[in-house]
Computed example of a mutant assay.
Amino acid sequence: MKSVFNPADVAELTDRINKLTTQTQPLWGKMAVAQMLAHCNVSYEMVYTDKHPKPNPFLKFILKTLVKSKVVGPVPYKHGNPTAPAFIIKDERDFELEKGRLIDHLKQTLELGEKHFDGKESHSFGKLPGGEWNTMFYKHLDHHLTQFGV
């Protein structure tokens, strides 16, 4: 799997993001392109901000038990998988703002590097090794860029 900690792979992701336009349509799903960018930003907001409340201990246990392996494992996401409420974007979003934020999040993640994330506490899954952080970040973003044909 490619890596959000590898400059060449981040450059490729950035190029894919830059191919999107306000008119880009999804190949599946209901989100508009700006909503998808905002949706992808949530993963990084959970790391870099306190915008999203952490799940209670019971819910965190359920997420670690039932969801974690699907999120941090190598198997690609299926189309139409359910998503956590924090990731559901129903309102309209500013395309350029969300695009810029996503590219900035990728740059920040690359600059911090895998060692920064190794053992870092995940919002929902507890402490993760750097490789699982990469899988979670890369797989999610790749899934949605593929959804929009880039």
Rank of each mutant, 00 (worst) to 15 (best):
M36V: 06
I103Q: 08
N81Y: 06
L13R: 03
H143V: 00
G73L: 07
M1S: 14
G100L: 03
P26K: 10
T146N: 11
H52W: 14
P74R: 05
K78L: 09
A11D: 15
F61G: 08
N6M: 11
D94L: 06
W28N: 07
E12C: 04
L97D: 11
S122V: 01
P7W: 12
A84V: 08
K99W: 04
L13T: 01
G73H: 05
P55L: 10
K139Q: 02
I89N: 02
G73F: 04
V75Q: 11
G131K: 13
F61Y: 02
V71M: 12
D118I: 14
E12K: 09
A34P: 08
G100P: 03
H52L: 06
I89W: 15
V10E: 07
G80K: 07
T24D: 13
T135K: 01
T14M: 11
M46L: 10
G113A: 06
G149P: 01
E98D: 03
D9F: 05
L63Y: 08
Q35T: 08
T49C: 01
H140K: 03
A38L: 03
V47W: 08
E132M: 02
P26W: 07
E98Y: 04
E114F: 02
L112T: 04
H52N: 13
N134M: 04
H52K: 13
K90S: 10
Y48N: 05
K19V: 00
K115D: 14
V42Y: 00
K30V: 04
K90D: 07
M31V: 06
K68I: 06
N56V: 00
V67C: 00
V75P: 05
T22V: 15
K99F: 09
K68W: 00
E96T: 11
K139N: 03
P57V: 01
T14C: 02
T21M: 08
T14Y: 09
